[in-house]
Every structure is written in structure tokens, then in C-alpha cells.
Amino acid sequence: MIEDNRPHKPPLDPEALRDAMSLSIWAGQMLLQHGADSARVEETVHRIGTGLGADWMDILVTSDSIVATTVNNHEFRTKVRRAPTRGINMALIDRVSALSYQAASGKLDRFALRARLREMDYLKPEYNRWWIVLAVGLACAAISRFFGGDLAAFGITFAAAALAMALRQELAHHHLNFILVTASTAFVASGLAALGTMTGVSATPSAAISASVLLLVPGVPLINGTKDLINGYPMNGVARGVNALVIVLCIAVGLSAALWITGVTLP
């Protein structure tokens, strides 16, 4: 047998090693489900696992699952966790990230970390849903100004995007498939905007119609996908890019259906 001279951390008992495995991968799962990029997931899992006493961790992050191995002395554990996407939640990413640093510095032991991670399931949304409806409506209205829309287009976009956002929340609440949610939200948003511009109050109907669907733009998958490509996760980058493309396709289908029914043409 070859003598092992590499430095090791103190040996963990089986429960401690199991917790180093399961808590670190649990935190990684939450990050991946709520919109973190692959590098952040990998680094955070590694930070928590080694913070809880593992010598090393090897982590394989895919676009919707994590496989990881903890190593301590000559003992190791491996675990697979699925992490299907659950929508963007920056507050959760912020909290879990902070927890990982506390675990790494030894401020949180495995029992405290487990309790804190469990709290994440009961995290209340930061904002009331109607405030979100209002803010998203305003955001799309602001984008209509970037597209050269006039004041009437601003108002039409605001109303159409806000109503569509309320519909989107309702549909997502009932666990409808995301493709149906996206396409029907795009249909309602652009349909309402088209109806609004048919009254002739706005001289820039196309600005209102194209801005009203932008609440659905897959900004985070696009940015994270490109980030993954740059950071050396080409598979995840491609998967996220395809995801974003599917969403864009759904938006376009909903929008062209609405234009076809109302008979409005975009110049």
C-alpha cells in the first residue's frame, strides 16, 4: 500500500460526512432551481461541503440536476439531486450564498445550517403580487418608450402588460406547463395591446404591441447560458440557450396568433 502523506482534515463520523454531503447538495439544488449559474452552484456546494469538514468535493452540475461526491480521509459519499427550474428568486440566492460563507467560516455547524436551509422553504415573497403586477406593467411601458412609442402607447402597454402579468401569476399558481403559460400570456398581452391601438389613440401601435410581451423575455436564461459558455460549462450553456429559445418561440407564437385574430399588422 502506498503511504498517504497528503494533509487531511480530522476524520468525520458517518453522520457528519452524510450531512456534509446532503446539506451542500441541498443548497446547490436551491440555487440551481432559482436561477443561479453553474459556476456559482459548483462553488457554493464546494464551499459548504469543505466548510462542514470534507477534504474535497467533486461536483457535476447539469442544467437541471447535481451529482456530487464528498471525500474525507479515505471515506466518500456520492449523491444525485434533481433540480428542475422553479423560477427566478434572487432573495433566496442571496440568503443561501450568505449561509455558505457562514458555514465555510465555521459560524454555522451542520445542525444550524440544516435549520437555516429548511427556513428557505418558508421564505415569504419580498413583494405583494399586485405591486409586482404594477411594476412589471410600468417596466414594459418604459420599454415601449425605448421603442419610440408615444404617451398613448405607454398607457396601452402598461395596461396590457399588467393584466398579462396578473394572468401569468394565476396560471403559474395553478402549475400549468410553462410553455402554455408563456404562449397564453404573450397572446393576452399582445392581443390587449392590439385592441388598444385599434382605437387609434396611438401613432406608434407597433411599439406598444412589441413592448407588451417583453415581460416574458427570458433574460436570466440568456445571461446565465452565455455565462456558462464563458465559464466552461458548454453543455449547460447550450441547454439554457435552448430553453430561452423555446420561450422566445412561445412568445412569438402567442403574439402572431393575437395579431392574426385582430388583423393588426406590424410594420
Partner: peptide, 20 residues
């Protein structure tokens, strides 16, 4: 001002912590 409005809307949609 307009792009801050866009950031506000998407920030709230993405559940950005209030302190940020």
C-alpha cells in the same frame, strides 16, 4: 429614469431583496 423603471419591474419579478 425609464431604465430604472425597467430594472424595478424585473427586480421585483425576480424577488430581489428589498435592501438591494
Amino acid at each position: 429614469l425609464l431604465s430604472a423603471m425597467v430594472a424595478l419591474g424585473f427586480g421585483m419579478l425576480f424577488n430581489v431583496p428589498r435592501r438591494l
